[in-house]
Amino acid sequence: MMRGGHLDITVLGGFQVSARGDLANWSTGEPDAVPAVGGAMDLVAGAANLFVMMEHVTRDGLPKIVERCSYPLTGLGVVDRIYTDLAVIDVQPGGGLLVTGLAEGVSFDAVAALSAAPLMLKGQCRVLR
Rank of each mutant, 00 (worst) to 15 (best):
H6F: 15
V91T: 09
G4M: 15
Q16A: 10
M2P: 05
I65T: 03
V111T: 06
I9P: 00
G95L: 02
D32E: 10
G101S: 00
A110T: 13
V57G: 06
V127H: 03
Q124N: 15
D60P: 00
T58F: 10
G46A: 06
V37L: 13
M1K: 12
G4A: 15
R68F: 11
L50Q: 01
A110P: 00
L7C: 13
A87R: 01
Q124W: 13
V11H: 05
P35V: 05
L128P: 07
G5D: 03
L62K: 14
G96R: 01
P118L: 10
A40Y: 02
M54C: 03
G101W: 03
R126Q: 13
G95I: 04
P118S: 11
A112V: 09
Q16K: 02
L7E: 04
D90L: 04
A19N: 05
G29W: 03
A48F: 03
T100G: 12
V91G: 02
A45I: 00
G39D: 13
R129N: 11
I9M: 09
F108P: 08
M54D: 03
G105T: 07
G21R: 05
I9R: 06
G94L: 08
V79D: 00
D80K: 13
G5N: 02
S18H: 08
R20I: 01
S18M: 11
D85L: 07
N25T: 08
P93L: 09
L73S: 04
A47L: 04
I89N: 11
P93F: 11
G105L: 09
P31W: 06
R126V: 10
V57K: 06
G96K: 01
V17L: 02
L121H: 04
N49C: 11
A116K: 11
I9C: 06
M54E: 05
D32M: 12
V44H: 01
A113G: 07
Q124F: 13
P35C: 04
A47H: 01
C125T: 15
V44F: 01
L23W: 01
A48S: 12
V34C: 07
D42Y: 12
G77H: 10
D85E: 03
A33R: 07
F51L: 15
H6P: 09
S70G: 13
V57T: 15
L73H: 09
G77F: 08
A36F: 08
V111H: 07
A103P: 04
M41L: 14
L98K: 11
C125R: 09
C69F: 09
G75C: 08
M120I: 08
Y71Q: 12
F51M: 14
L97H: 04
V44C: 04
S115D: 02
G46Y: 02
G95M: 01
Y83D: 11
M120H: 11
A113S: 12
A45H: 05
D22C: 06
D8A: 13
L7I: 13
N25I: 04
V91P: 02
L128A: 07
D22W: 09
A103T: 13
I82M: 07
T58M: 09
L62I: 06
A113Y: 07
D80R: 13
P35E: 01
T58D: 05
